[in-house]
Computed example of a mutant assay.
Amino acid sequence: MTNKKNITWHTSMITKKQRRDQNGHQSFILWFTGLSGSGKSTLANAVAKALFNRKIRNYILDGDNIRFGLSKNLGFSEEDRKENIRRIGEVAKLFVDSGQVVLTAFISPFQEDRHQVRQLVEQNEFVEVYVKCPLAECEKRDPKRLYQKARKGEIKEFTGIDSPYEEPIKPELVIETNRYSVEECVVQVMTYLEKEQLI
């Protein structure tokens, strides 16, 4: 634990508003949450490309990628998952401050953890996107064969099998990837962002 008595917060000479003005758009977190195999990363990447094509600066923080570096020392226990999301929240907050859109694709199974990230930023800077897909469909897709391993007992505390997933209570968006194509899902996200004047 850091001793806060020995550290000082340094305020940047360049404000978040100035960075936004330079970029020509708002900055916020697009938080994609859902079961493994629901399509979070696929959708986040497709939305990122759509934003990029409109010259909106953005970056994706993906669950697997983060565990190669920032969270490489964490496992998948409930405690480690909470710490992983805490770290991502703090990094995402920095991206918002830099004037960019940050897209995060994490199972983030616990409501409390997602709420804590929301509290890190200002109102309208956190857009929770529930990538909703039935467990049976996610398990059928199983792109990484994780469900298969979990069913065999090779992976412990796997979300949806022997660890819970708490559905978002009031997400800004619910995207049903089992009902719509990737392109249709992207349109739903972009339409919401336009309606809220975020882009």
Rank of each mutant, 00 (worst) to 15 (best):
N3M: 00
N3K: 05
N3A: 01
K5G: 07
I7E: 04
W9V: 14
H10Q: 14
S12M: 07
M13L: 13
T15C: 05
K17S: 10
Q22H: 12
S27V: 12
F28D: 09
I29S: 07
F32V: 07
G34M: 00
S38Q: 08
S38H: 06
K40G: 08
S41Y: 06
T42G: 01
L43R: 06
A44Q: 06
N45A: 14
A46P: 04
V47Y: 07
V47C: 09
V47A: 05
A50M: 00
A50S: 11
L51F: 02
L51T: 06
F52V: 10
R54Y: 06
K55T: 07
K55N: 15
R57Q: 13
R57I: 06
I60M: 10
L61W: 08
D62W: 03
G63I: 01
G63F: 00
G63V: 00
D64Q: 09
L70W: 01
N73F: 03
L74T: 10
E78W: 00
E78N: 11
E79D: 04
E83P: 08
I85S: 10
I85Q: 13
G89D: 07
G89E: 11
E90A: 06
V91E: 01
V91I: 09
V91R: 00
F95R: 07
V96M: 05
S98G: 10
S98N: 15
G99W: 02
V101F: 02
V101E: 08
V102Q: 12
V102S: 02
L103F: 11
T104L: 11
T104N: 10
A105V: 06
A105L: 07
A105G: 13
I107H: 01
P109N: 05
P109G: 03
P109L: 01
P109K: 03
F110M: 14
Q111S: 13
D113P: 15
R114G: 00
R114W: 06
Q116C: 06
R118G: 09
Q119N: 15
E122S: 15
E125K: 14
F126T: 10
V127Y: 00
E128S: 09
V129Q: 09
Y130R: 04
V131G: 11
K132A: 12
K132C: 11
P134E: 02
P134W: 00
L135T: 07
A136T: 15
E137Y: 12
C138K: 07
E139N: 11
K140C: 08
D142A: 06
K144A: 05
L146A: 10
Q148L: 02
K152A: 11
G160A: 10
I161Y: 01
I161A: 12
D162F: 05
P164C: 04
P164K: 02
P164H: 01
E166S: 13
P168I: 11
I169N: 12
P171R: 08
P171Q: 14
L173Q: 13
V174L: 09
E176W: 02
E176I: 10
N178C: 14
N178P: 14
V182S: 04
V182E: 01
E184K: 15
E184R: 14
E184T: 13
C185S: 15
V186C: 13
Q188N: 04
V189H: 05
M190W: 10
M190G: 09
T191C: 00
E194R: 12
E194C: 05
E196P: 04
Q197A: 13
L198D: 09
I199K: 09
